[in-house]
């Protein structure tokens, strides 16, 4: 048991981990520029809907809570890995995957609804920037889901080795980061859009 705590701690102090941290910080800058675009364009509705009439608040709240919970369970994966409990690791990974998938499903459904009701990204600068910002986040979530599936496969095959634990810690960082970005999407796009920025 003590051995595995060491494995997690060494994985978290490698150069790979620091490099991944730097990647995440640069990804933050990517999202910041998309937020800047949204902040500049959100009033250019071209006579169409604004955020105030377009978004459903309870729906956005449900998405937020689902993603927050999946971020929490992803953290529990690391705690289970520290205890060398590979069954629990798989269980928490499965729950994280399910919640992440549910979140992505809700987001795609929302996009589909917007496009079906004639509010696609072609309509206005506001909608273009909205789809770019939220869509880029959704793309990251999809990549995270694929990564999670690959990780689960390797843990299933090789157990909790040095390599799989390293992958787990990096993935955990990535998943937490996606939830951090979502706080700002929820606050700036949905809540402030609802109030009428």
């Amino acid at each position: 048991m003590a051995e595995n705590i060491d494995l997690v701690e060494t994985a978290e102090s490698t150069k790979t981990y620091l490099g991944f941290w730097i990647y995440i910080m640069t990804d933050c800058i990517l999202f910041a520029s998309l937020f800047a675009v949204y902040a500049v364009l959100h009033n250019n509705t071209n006579g169409g809907h604004s955020g105030q009439t377009l978004f459903s608040m309870p729906y956005a709240l449900a998405e937020t809570l689902i993603l927050l919970t999946s971020s929490f369970t992803s953290g529990l994966t690391i705690l289970a890995a520290r205890r060398n409990n590979s069954k629990k690791v798989m269980l928490w990974m499965a729950i994280t995957f399910f919640l992440g998938g549910l979140f992505l499903f809700l987001e795609v459904k929302e996009f589909n609804h917007l496009i079906q009701t004639g509010n696609s990204w072609r309509v206005s600068g506001f909608l273009s920037s909205y789809f770019t910002l939220v869509g880029t986040h959704g793309l990251h979530i999809s990549i995270g889901l694929i990564w999670m599936a690959i990780l689960v496969f390797f843990i299933f095959r090789n157990g909790l080795s040095k390599k799989t634990i390293k992958g787990l810690t990096l993935f955990n960082l990535f998943w937490h980061f996606l939830d951090v970005i979502w706080i700002f999407i929820f606050s700036v796009v949905y809540l402030m859009g609802h109030v009428g920025l």
Partner: peptide, 20 residues
């Protein structure tokens, strides 16, 4: 709006410390 911004900032700091 400033209230929402402040709460988002607090949650950002909380997640940075507790999760990351």
């Amino acid at each position: 709006i400033s209230g929402i911004g402040l709460l988002a900032f607090i949650q950002f700091i909380v997640q940075m410390i507790f999760f990351l």
